[in-house]
Design a protein around this nucleic acid. Structure first.
Lengths: 211, 211
DNA sequence: TAGATTGTTAATCGATTAACAATC
DNA sequence: TAGATTGTTAATCGATTAACAATC
């Protein structure tokens, strides 16, 4: 389902709510916007406004049913059924992220994002596996992405290779990309690119050292 | 120097400008807000407004002197002299980030953040080094942080250990923390904590797969 | 019924954009 | 001088907060 006009600021908070609900589940059957906000670091009024974009999930005087809201949020975020993910660039960072996600997928029943394919240029790696995930060459992106129904990808290649990898992923049909390379990637606007730029983040933090 | 009332939205863009200036340096001696904005993905008016918070760096009809502005931004971000950084948690992610930052520090003269100490619980690692960076036990945070004048730290320990590590770092005098553990850390408000939460980011991206 | 809490509207706050006089 | 571009003010846009009637 598509929700028109919901801003990214709202979407960013939904996984946060989901995390709180997972912690609370079993302990309490319902939760108020006040309590949910407290745990997520969001004001109660904003919690209610965020949720109201998608429907009426609460009961006056009671709050939100924990399991019902969890299901609703998972549906909204498309986390009901498994999402197949690829990771391109099996250097030390790619290696770490592949293992981390693999483990998370196996251990946390709510984390339904599954790494199913790795890609790298290194011929020593290609043909092998990492934690049971097969490693392919970059040329195989075109074939493997549709084959494995991969919708989401992580890029952990060096900066100068990132744009080419991004193009290949987009052409193969990937709809969302998490980019760790320190470059601004160009992609069609129906493809969502999120950047996690460690060095920008550290340089930003440096500002606050003196404040 | 401390700049009062400058919002974090502004600070976040400064490292982006810095990156563009580094690319342009040598090619051109001055740059307009239009061009700088183009490369950084920011509107020219906003570039000028951001820079104006800190002084008058430009010349009408000409633009900004590349080297002068670069120096000014480095001064503002406290990147003029080296910043000592610690990394706590030498698992596969910590390992990757330590190596990445070490290399970046050695190769990129503008990247002045230097990893000088690693910390881990694993007795097999403690006492050893990684890429020449010594690995200490967690108990040594209290001693090593002041000794090495560490101001910035990265946390890559499991979620359940993160708050204790954060407390130890804060007590030892660290002023800014980049946290990779999927928990909301509590810290005094003069300590700046930034979160890079991979799973929240992936769950957010999942939303856009269906849109 | 009384207390609690929702969903929603209006008010506030903050960030971005547009416009332009000043001036290199 | 003419063209370009700054720094800054006012206008716009969007997101958050406060308030409250509805109702469980």
């Amino acid at each position: 389902m598509v929700w028109k006009g919901v801003s990214d600021a709202v979407i960013r908070r939904l996984p946060l709510y989901l995390r709180v609900l997972e912690e609370v589940k079993g302990k309490e059957s319902s939760i108020s916007s006040h309590e949910l906000g407290e745990e997520a670091g969001v004001r109660p009024a904003l919690v209610r406004k965020d949720l109201a974009w998608f429907g009426e999930f609460g009961k006056q005087g009671v709050g939100y049913d924990v399991e019902f809201l969890q299901d609703a949020l998972r549906k909204i975020l498309h986390l009901e059924e498994p999402i197949h993910m690829a990771l391109v660039g099996v250097g030390s960072l790619g290696h770490a992220l592949a293992r981390y996600n693999r483990r998370r997928f196996l251990e946390d029943p709510v984390f339904t994002i599954e790494p199913v394919a790795l890609f790298d240029v290194n011929p020593k790696l290609v043909g092998g596996t990492l934690d049971g995930i097969p490693i392919y060459s970059l040329e195989e992106i075109k074939r493997v992405v549709p084959e494995e129904a991969i919708q989401l990808a992580i890029i952990t290649v060096p900066a100068d290779a990132a744009q080419k990898v991004c193009d290949a992923l987009v052409e193969a049909g990937v709809k969302a990309i998490l980019n760790f390379a320190p470059v601004q990637l160009e992609a069609p606007k129906d493809v969502h690119v999120a950047n996690t730029d460690l060095s920008l983040e550290l340089q930003r933090l440096a500002y606050y050292i003196g404040v």
